[in-house]
Design a protein around this nucleic acid. Structure first.
Length: 209
DNA sequence: CGAATTTGACCTGCGC
DNA sequence: GCGCAGGTCAAATTCG
């Protein structure tokens, strides 16, 4: 967990889209992290810049507002009430694979994938009732980078109160999280995008991970 | 001792 | 219909 402390990650937003609305005007194909590794997504439609953060920008914790939706289409079990339909993926330059985003993750699987020589790790938010998942794998092209894909949106705040997440609506476009359009970002999300040192300091002082 | 991680097996979807 | 690949489960193991 304490992986990110003292580290700077160069993060590239790769893609994000509402999984229940892949036919929207954004015309996002259901890209997976594999596509990033294959290098066919970055320049194609979304590369929101290379920003240096102390932490990767996870989806901001927000109440689940997505009703229904075709979750199975993306492998999100419909039985998981907390699972939402948004997906955000990004590539982060980091020496460690497990990036501390303020949430508590529980590893539930590891799989070698063909698209990458590196194994892919599967994590699930350990918070009760939160079905958010994330996949983490090393970039096949550049092992210095870690490709992280979040599935869903947290329906709770970060365990530690989380005023430290380096994530802002400006850093994460509105379309990245459908729920954002329906409700204003939570107060703690305002800190996202705070100066690196501030975010890092806040994190190191507030997080027990 | 409880919680988290590991890891092999199993299930499901997709392409051929 | 079959095989492959990705994703998930769950028992065993490890760690704090």
């Amino acid at each position: 967990m304490a992986a990110s402390l003292g580290l700077c990650h160069e993060t590239s937003y790769a893609y994000s889209y509402p999984a229940s609305n892949t036919s929207s005007s954004l015309c996002f194909p259901p890209l997976m992290a594999d596509h990033i590794i294959d290098g066919c997504s970055f320049g194609d439609f979304l590369e929101l810049g290379h920003s240096v953060y102390s932490l990767p920008p996870p989806p901001p914790p927000q109440p689940v507002v997505v009703a229904g939706g075709s979750n199975d289409q993306y492998g999100v079990p419909s039985s998981s009430a907390a699972a939402t339909t948004s997906r955000i993926g990004f590539r982060t330059r980091s020496e460690v694979e497990v990036l501390d985003d303020g949430f508590k993750w529980r590893k539930y699987g590891k799989k070698a994938v063909k698209s990458s020589p590196n194994p892919r790790n599967y994590y699930r938010c350990s918070a009760a009732g939160c079905g958010v998942k994330k996949r983490v794998e090393r970039d096949g092209d550049d092992p210095r980078y870690v490709v992280t894909t979040y599935d869903g949106v947290h329906n709770h705040a970060t365990p530690g109160g989380a005023g430290h997440l380096p994530y802002t609506p400006s850093a994460a476009p509105a379309w990245s999280v459908p729920a954002a359009a329906a409700s204003p970002p939570p107060a703690h999300a305002q800190a996202w995008g705070a100066p690196l040192h501030a975010a890092a300091a806040a994190h190191s002082s507030e997080s027990s991970f």
